[in-house]
Computed example of a mutant assay.
Amino acid sequence: MEFSPAFESGVLLQRYKRFLTDITLENGEQVTIHCPNTGSMKNCLFPSEKVWFSVSDNPKRKYSRTWELAQTPDGHIIGINTGRANALAEEAIASGIITELQGYDSLRREVKYGSENSRIDILLEDANKPNCYIEVKSCTLLEQGQGYFPDAVTTRGQKHLRELMEMVQQGHRAVLLFVVQHSGINCVAAAAHIDAAYAKLLTEAHQAGVEVLAYSADLSPTQTRLVKSCPVRL
């Protein structure tokens, strides 16, 4: 995924009201930009550190700038825009990076499925094999050298695990794919200390046949792409 023009930079002041972030531009001007992340952003908010943002030319937008990347005090880069995770996953499947998800004829996004009325992030289909249902999650929480998901209690994430298990029961293939958007994360685990119910359900889902994968992103102001498999501790 290439960005043209490249992201512009500034310095983080604060995030507030969930979707708003104040930054200082390189020319010293203070502006408010859109924060495209609905999570807690635990361990992702570092005031006075560098951030990068994209700029939209859509005149209908109240805030033309969107927060994309953050830098930690240790120099790691974090992908703030969780909305890019699905596109990164699709691109990595199409390019052959995610080797476990090759060999299908077609790919569709946001397809309705499951008894709890959800939409699957990616559906792979082939006339000669079972469908493959892929739920994509962005992983950005780093604590003591370990990557975790989720960064807050997620009843929605629990629902997705139940529906993936349902797909396995129906004879389909089901995959939970962690898109790791933090350059300091080398391994992913369920955050039982944050959402014990999710961690328990993830173990049950894996035992029921849901595949759990993680791929790390190479992040920069000019391009972002998934580059390699990342271990998952279950």
Rank of each mutant, 00 (worst) to 15 (best):
D126T: 02
R18M: 15
E91R: 02
L101I: 09
D151Q: 11
D74Y: 07
T222G: 10
V210P: 15
G114Y: 04
A94N: 01
H193Q: 09
W52L: 08
P73L: 07
S106R: 00
T224E: 11
D22F: 02
L13Y: 06
Y215Q: 01
R84K: 03
Y215E: 02
E116C: 07
L202C: 11
A208V: 11
D22N: 04
V11H: 13
I194L: 15
G28Q: 01
V210S: 14
G171P: 11
G157E: 05
L101K: 09
V180W: 09
P59Q: 05
I33P: 11
V188P: 03
K129D: 05
P150D: 03
F53G: 13
P36H: 15
R173K: 15
C187A: 14
S220F: 10
Q30T: 08
R225L: 07
Y198L: 11
L202F: 09
V180L: 05
D121C: 01
L20N: 13
K42F: 11
A191C: 12
Q223E: 04
M1I: 14
D218N: 07
C187M: 11
R18A: 15
L202K: 13
D57F: 10
P150I: 13
T82H: 10
E211Y: 15
A217L: 00
A6W: 05
V111S: 08
A217E: 02
S115P: 13
V180M: 07
Y215S: 03
A191D: 14
N117P: 08
D121W: 00
H193C: 11
R61Q: 15
N43L: 07
K137Q: 01
R233K: 12
L20Q: 12
L141Y: 08
M41S: 15
S54M: 07
P130E: 07
K159Y: 00
P47G: 04
S118D: 06
V232S: 11
W52I: 03
S106N: 03
L201R: 10
I194W: 15
D195Q: 05
N81C: 08
A189W: 10
T21S: 11
A94E: 03
A196Q: 07
A205Q: 12
F53S: 13
I134P: 02
V55R: 14
A70C: 02
K42E: 12
A199F: 09
L234I: 02
T72W: 02
D74Q: 10
R18T: 15
R84E: 10
S115Q: 09
L201S: 09
L164C: 13
L164H: 12
C230W: 06
G83V: 09
N128Y: 11
G75Y: 01
T72P: 02
N81Y: 04
V227L: 02
V153R: 08
V175S: 12
L201E: 13
V188M: 05
E166F: 10
T38V: 13
M167W: 13
L107I: 00
V136F: 00
E204H: 14
P36K: 15
D105R: 03
V212E: 05
S138V: 06
L124I: 01
